[in-house]
Design a protein around this nucleic acid. Structure first.
Lengths: 222, 222, 222, 222
DNA sequence: AATGAATGAGCGTTCATTCAT
DNA sequence: CATGAATGAACGCTCATTCAT
């Protein structure tokens, strides 16, 4: 009935670009791409470098991914899946508001300032002008997603009478930004080479929580 | 008026390539570079594109700038000069603390979220992995500078008894981040095409000021 | 016969650019390079010219050779291998001293004044100032090598009592230079287009042998 | 009557390229060209380098010389004039044959192996394929000239009964080559950086004279 | 006559992509 | 499906030469 159904013979025909089916090989390629893109950025990474890092031939790259851009996008997506795990648990699991915020903030900052997330941000930002689709998607599935989840959490606490917030979306963004103050920006610009130490993160997040609650917290009676 | 005065270019001569002395042409090239770099980022902008956009020959580019990287750096520097004017006046001129912070925050956000600053940030971030020098310089002369100036201002107000701040550097960074909450990030990722409207900026900055003073403000007696 | 034997290229792989394994193509490129370098010298030969002459794409040149200089060096080496064959046989095979020297001298001159050897010398000399390594290597593997081998031969004949030579290295150089008198220099400068005829070579080498033996020969007792 | 005579008005007209008339400036340019060509060879020397070395503008180069090639040729010619002086005096002034040959040989070798002559040879050889006219002229006015003069000298001594030479041209070339054995070739290839010491030259030339006279000398009667 | 900014063709080299095997 | 040799367009950059001043 569909165009596809009308040409079943072609469905595996054309003989080329059947889309790489072997998940191991796909994984292997993404590992190589991770290494190379992280070290050099998008433009300065060559498909030859990636093929070498993945220990496959250049041709194989094109069996599994349409082109360089799609390979990069696939990598970004895989990394996002890998990393967002466990961040939001604190919000669900810890009953005490201040403690929940602290834990969430610390995990978030550790994620953002460590390893691939920083590189991925740089790369995506670097191509955002040319590839607005990619930039938007990355933002929406990453930072925006996080802000939304936190906003929902805050909303719940408002309803519980623990917080007084008019604009939860703004408040969520404020908290996330406060947690990163002095930590993310210099590292994004590569002006500071090392991830922040846990104590430093704890200190900044503690200040963020204090400030946040000073503004939005509901004083308990008595 | 003298022959010597008429050839000031010699005074900066090093070895060869006395460097284009014609400021109009230099300006013309930077305009072209602005357009092209803004539209495509660093790597995807070719010197041929820039030459065409500037309406000069490729060779001329190299009379005025050592190479692509130096051209880009010169552009960044020019834009910074153009833009940093007037940002810090509010801090010096307005006696009332809350008003001074509001004014400063609003101008800062308008600067960061408008036009070239966003593009420049993207480009620098995009190459920061490969060119850490550039990233560091950009960060230090831009964001870090702003934070420092604000920290100095805050310190003065602490000494005047208006604020109680233990770590002025952190406080300054917090204020600057609060002012940008929900405004800068989506635009950096090109997820939102337009600069924020003045009312939106005013709203976010007002919230930042409130929050900031709730935490660090000294309640006046009686 | 085995799979391993079928891909010998891997054995030489370093990092990337496993280097063209197809010997036919390599040969084809060297032929093109031969033609172009011979006709124009090193600097005036462009990789585009060579690619065209070899009937391959410019990119293919870089699959087989690292850069222009390495291509040139490979060409020189190939020609040396091709040509040095059979020169020294005369020294080993012919017992009579005068005959051995004649035969060696004639072959040497024929080699030096014919075809590529002349061009290669010109090219190497032309770049020797900028690329002293190349000049030195060429000299050592070429002219110096020949002189050394002849010196060793002479030394043996000294030990047999046929020659009386104090400085065999000087004597060897003298003989080689005498063999080339009037023949090599004008051709090196391209002042005479054709290689010398065999009779001319025979005449000059005969004179060289006579002169050499008049000086260094040991008169046999009556 | 000639085409030139028919258009006298044009003779200095056209306003351009009147051929640089100032001999000081011409000299200045040639000095700069000497330095640069000597250090880098023909192709690797840029007109900008030469202009800088000569302390004139690039444009001025083209006032005095048609193009790079003609500038180089003019330099070669000037150097030849400068250097050939005094070489042949020994042949004219010293009555004793062996002494005359020694003196001549030593001066010749000192000239050839020192300074610019070596560079000039390299450069001319390097471009001889592309510029056969230049190669031929250089050879004829340089090496060939020297051989001819020596041949004429030898012929005179033959007529005086001091020598027995059938082919004076060959004999002259042989002597000149013997004088340079082990000295010129390695330096031409830049395999040995320094000019030979006077003692070394004396030793090689002495051997050349001995060998030459052993072959061509006429034994004086008892 | 002298300048040096401007030109633009051309350079060596890279690299995403294709395709015969 | 996997390979990697081959391609050719495009890159950043150089430089002999021109020409308005």
């Amino acid at each position: 009935m569909t165009a596809i159904a009308e040409r079943p013979a072609r469905s595996r025909a054309r003989n080329r670009r059947v889309a790489g089916a072997d998940p191991d090989k796909r994984h292997q390629i993404l590992e190589g791409a991770h290494v190379v893109f992280t070290a050099r950025g998008f433009d300065a990474s060559s498909m030859a470098d990636i093929a070498a890092a993945a220990n496959v031939s250049k041709g194989t790259l094109y069996v599994y991914f349409e082109d360089k851009e799609h390979l990069f996008i696939a990598l970004i997506e895989r990394e996002r899946e890998k990393q967002k795990q466990g961040i939001y648990e604190a919000l669900a699991d810890i009953p005490d508001l201040a403690q929940a915020l602290s834990r969430f903030g610390e995990r978030l900052v550790r994620l953002i300032t460590g390893g691939f997330a920083l590189s991925a941000q740089r790369i995506v930002l670097g191509v955002a002008e040319r590839m607005p689709e990619l930039g938007r998607e990355f933002y929406e599935r990453g930072p925006m997603q996080g802000t939304r989840r936190l906003a929902a959490f805050l909303q719940r606490r408002v309803e519980l009478g623990e917080l007084a917030i008019e604009d939860p979306a703004l408040a969520a963004a404020q908290f996330i930004d406060l947690c990163q103050s002095t930590l993310t920006r210099p590292r994004l610009f590569n002006a500071v080479p090392m991830p922040p130490e846990d104590e430093e993160i704890a200190r900044v997040v503690a200040s963020a929580v204090t400030m946040f609650l000073a503004q939005y917290g509901v004083k308990k009676p008595g």
